[in-house]
Design a protein around this nucleic acid. Structure first.
Lengths: 232, 232
DNA sequence: GTCTATATGTTGATAGAC
DNA sequence: GTCTATCAACATATAGAC
């Protein structure tokens, strides 16, 4: 029942120099292949619905190897989630924390996020679903977003953006809005269409191509929509 | 393997007159209690993660009864999803289809949706997660939304709203926007905060109370934000 | 590191008494 | 309609050979 905590993972990846690509390394080493396979399967079925067997098949290895590298399904799930979480927002956080003008930030975020999500469209649904069923993974989500404590980053971003909003308001270039609402509005408009894609596509009768077109139009029009909302 | 299709469900609910509340009916009849319990459990764990046993416990009955009423876990999941899907959007669809002025529709939808979701905050994550893992349930989602064919309702709404937008644009009261973008923007702003609640709460350090306050502020400010975005 | 074989525990589902 | 008892099918995880 109680497992020894440190049947240490086979090796820490990273600093091995001068390794002439070994046979296993040809298409990425095994651990990486497993992680990728797990990512694919978890994405499609959700962690609870996924079978270790299928992940092994997808990775082209035996299922015992998954346990050799990741010890348990739950830890594998954590690893995958952690990596996935690192793809949703850190670029956005970087832009927000910078000292560029607010309007420029909005344009940059819309572009960055819509481009990224176009490449990994299932990411939002996966993250949302995972967080709904495993609230304890919020920690992973945050730490994937940054190295700092849970809400330290959030607070910093709110302060920075809040400051910029105040400036704009004082200069009569913007109507007041709470920075929390500002951020949630922006993220909602970027992320939700992907999270709710099946719904949206079905309701409006969009096939894959039409959806892509819809997103391209969005990428172009959304920044103005958002910025107009804040004109005084 | 092949199951006879029609070991018909025990009875069709609905038209039984003059039934002096039988003992079982006192706190809702059994089928209803099971459905409610399943709703709760599926919501929390997701369908794949849920256990029939736990649903039975939650309903206060034996797990064999679940199969008596719903035949299989999958059918129970369908029933729950169908009912849940009917809570997310039909009120919105009703407002959109009406002949009220566009601005009024926006205000009504924000209020209706935020009020409803405040009462059932896990609904969006559940629907999103379920649709991501079971694309085949889109049909249920749509038919729960209306009696009509898959995208018939969507098309009608787009036509109505599109017409109203055109009017407003011609009268120079609104800047042009595709009705698809209009609707997705509105729904994004209403629904996403609930779907991504754990993320948002963690990043901004909101407890339950602060989140509720956040939503109340949103209910008040969102309509103007949205309508301002479309000023010419 | 990677495989085969297997232990161990759940889980959805059914049979049959009441 | 509701319960008890039980089955058959998996799924996760480990042992141990190579």
């Amino acid at each position: 029942m109680v497992k020894q905590v440190s049947k240490s993972p086979p090796r820490a990846r990273g600093g091995v120099p001068y390794v002439t690509t070994s046979p296993a390394e040809l298409d990425g080493d095994t651990e990486q292949r497993i992680l990728d396979a797990a990512h694919t399967v978890f994405m499609k079925t959700g962690t609870a619905g996924a079978r270790m067997q299928e992940i092994a098949r997808e990775a082209g290895v035996n299922s015992a190897l998954l346990h050799y590298y990741f010890r348990s399904k739950d830890r594998l799930a954590e690893a995958v989630f952690h990596r996935a979480a690192g793809q949703l927002l850190p670029a956005v956080a970087g832009v927000l924390a910078s000292d560029r003008p607010l309007a420029e930030k909005v344009r940059a975020i819309v572009e960055i996020e819509l481009d990224r999500l176009s490449r990994t469209p299932y990411l939002p649904a996966y993250i949302i679903s995972e967080l709904a069923h495993h609230p304890e993974r919020i920690t992973h989500f945050i730490s994937a977003l940054t190295g700092s404590q849970p809400d330290a980053l959030g607070r910093r971003l709110l302060r920075v953006v809040g400051g910029q909003i105040d400036e704009e308001v004082r200069a009569r270039r913007m109507r007041p809005i709470a920075p929390e609402q500002f951020l949630v509005n922006l993220l909602s408009l970027c992320i939700f269409p992907f999270a709710a894609r099946p719904m949206i596509s079905a309701m409006m009768g969009l096939d894959d191509k039409a959806f892509a077109r819809f997103i391209r139009e969005r990428r172009e029009k959304l920044p103005d929509f958002f910025l107009n909302a804040l004109r005084p």
